[in-house]
Every structure is written in C-alpha cells, then in structure tokens.
Amino acid sequence: MTTFSEPSALGPRPSAVWNALASVPDPEIPVVSITDMGMVRGVSVDGEKVTVTFTPTFSGCPALHVIRASIEQAVRALGVADVEVRSTLTPPWTTDWINDAARERLREYGIAPPAPAEHGLIQLEAEPTPCPRCHSFDVRMTASFGPTLCKRMYVCDSCKEPFEGFKSV
C-alpha cells in the first residue's frame, strides 16, 4: 500500500493529491489509473478542503459511483476530512487524453489503444487496429461493442488471438 505525506494545517499540497489520484485504478482496466486516462481535470486545495474535478470516459458510465468513491477515499487517505468530488462532461473526455505510458500498458494488457481522435467526434468507421500481441494489422472486428461501450472486439488472423480495442472518441 502506498503511503502519502501528512497534510499541513492548511491542507495537502496539490501535488500530493495528484500523486494520490495516480494510484486510483480505472475500475474497468486496473492496469491504468484515472490520471493515466486523463479523467482528472483539476485539483483545488482551499485551506483544508480539497476539490477534485473529473470527466468520465463515458457520460453513462456505470462505474461513476466507483470512481467518485475511489477519488474520495484516496484524498481522505491523505488526512483530508473535507473532500468534494465533482464530475463534468464539458469538455467531453477524449481518448487523446490517455497518456503514452498508459497506452503501452493497455497494449501489454491485451487491449489495443485507440488511434488519435479526429475533431473530438466518435468515429463511425473502425480505424486500423493492430493486434496488441503480435502487432499485425491482419485483424477483423467481430463485434462493434465489447464488454464496455468504449471498446470493440477483434480477432487477429496472424496469431489467432481475440482482443479488445478502444474506440477513438
């Protein structure tokens, strides 16, 4: 378990809050954090009150309550009693906010990371998606929707492995 520094009488430093949030896993993909995914939009420390603003990856995300509770728990672990967690849909989350290290961890986990989004719009046509295992583009989509609405299902015809691929949004 990660230990964080104790807050001062005026509350924790924003960097300590960001560090705590970096340990909060995405509830659906535990190899990346909510900060890796670009969901945390802001941290504000006002005296002993900490406010965290986040944007969910999907407005109807069924894990919103889990994300909110995990953020609150991570900040409270710093010794902060007054925590406010706000969610915002503006601007809408985009896969372009996923950092490079997280993209590599997704690939290693077996999920093809998304291609760059174009103009912040959901792409109706599936972009070329390489297999995260063998890197071949000889893949075929088997389902437009995977275990979550943000992913598609594929099979690689080179290595014969099925995999999930993020949609670009």
Rank of each mutant, 00 (worst) to 15 (best):
T2K: 10
T2M: 04
T3K: 01
T3R: 02
P7K: 03
S8G: 15
S8I: 03
A9R: 14
A9L: 12
L10N: 14
R13L: 10
P14W: 00
V17N: 01
A20T: 05
A22R: 15
S23Q: 13
V24C: 04
V24R: 05
I29V: 15
I29T: 11
V31G: 06
V32Q: 00
V32G: 02
V32F: 09
V32I: 15
T35R: 04
T35I: 09
T35N: 05
D36V: 04
D36P: 10
D36N: 02
M37A: 13
M37T: 07
G38P: 09
G38N: 08
G38M: 01
G38Y: 00
V45S: 05
D46A: 15
V50N: 04
V50K: 05
T51E: 14
T53E: 13
F54I: 03
T55P: 08
T55G: 05
T57D: 10
T57R: 09
F58N: 03
P62H: 09
L64Y: 03
H65C: 12
V66A: 11
V66Y: 06
R68F: 10
S70P: 06
I71R: 01
E72L: 03
A74M: 09
L78F: 07
D82H: 14
V83C: 15
E84W: 09
E84R: 15
R86C: 10
R86Y: 03
S87F: 12
S87N: 12
T88W: 15
T90E: 15
T90A: 15
P92S: 14
W93H: 04
W93C: 04
T94E: 13
T94R: 10
T95H: 12
T95R: 09
D96F: 02
W97S: 13
W97I: 07
W97Q: 15
W97F: 13
I98P: 14
N99H: 08
N99Q: 14
E104S: 12
R105M: 10
R107I: 03
P114H: 05
P114E: 01
P114T: 02
P114R: 03
A115W: 01
A117Q: 01
E118Q: 10
E118M: 02
G120W: 00
I122G: 00
I122K: 00
I122Y: 05
Q123V: 01
Q123K: 00
E125V: 10
A126P: 04
E127K: 06
P128Q: 03
T129K: 06
P132Q: 05
R133G: 11
C134S: 02
S136M: 07
F137D: 06
V139C: 12
V139S: 08
M141F: 04
T142R: 11
F145H: 11
F145K: 13
G146D: 10
G146I: 11
P147T: 13
T148Q: 07
T148N: 07
L149M: 14
L149A: 15
L149H: 12
C150I: 01
C150F: 02
C150W: 03
R152I: 02
V155M: 11
C156L: 08
C159T: 01
K160F: 07
E161T: 14
E161K: 13
P162N: 11
E164S: 13
G165Y: 08
G165V: 07
F166C: 10
K167S: 00
V169F: 11
V169A: 03
